[in-house]
Amino acid sequence: MKHEHKYKSGPEKYVMVIDIDKCTGCGACVIACAVENNLPVRTDETRKLLSVDWLVIYKITNGKPFPKTRIAYIPRGCMHCDNPMCVHVCPASATDKDDKGVVSQIYPRCFGCRYCMAACPYHARVFNWWDPTFPKGTERGLNPDVSTRMRGVVEKCSFCNHRYQRAKEKAMLEGRTTLRDGEYITACAEACPTGAITFGNVKDPNSKVSKLVKSPYAFRLLEKFGTEPSVYYISRQEWVRREADRYFEEKAKKISKE
């Protein structure tokens, strides 16, 4: 028996494709995300498991000894799974999956039971252990499109949903109800200087992402868990694919055939 979320997408289904081979781990996406989404900062952020981060960069290694060691970077936000366990388990309906593929998180509804964090194998969800703090004066730079979160609630990457709302308002003024490719992209995708992050509507056959997800080198994190993430990764390096997933051999064979 599987707890499958019966997810039906509408005419839009947004996905993110991250090319690991292009990612230099520079962190511009992380900063852009923080600025865009009003992430709080504390004076000591070195205990990463207590930090509020929507996007983190994992550094993985091939495990070989010096000088054969190689490293790669995996930026990881929320996977916006098509079968999101977090949505399933939230007792207060503070999170749902909408028809464009975004898994939401409603801060004033959440009462902080953290069951969703236990359910998420990606660690995409973080908890506000403290009241949010911003360096004195920098509150002036807060983005009004994103509400700040109070202590005691869970938060996570929203695929910059407010940017969708913004793009949609503009389109609606022009009488359109659908968006063009590129009208709505996340802050991280926009900031990435190497173009490693691509974002768009996978149901639009002309979008960049709809082509990228078909790459034989595309994979998703922890696919075996059956979560059906909306974030795809691409790497031509076999060891990266193996390290990044609970890799299964069938897939390796498929790629070697092609």
């Binding site: 909408d98 028809d99 499109d145 929203s158 407010h162």
Partner: peptide, 10 residues
Amino acid sequence: AKKYCFTCHK
């Protein structure tokens, strides 16, 4: 009309 959380929340 749509009534997903993110239809109205931010």
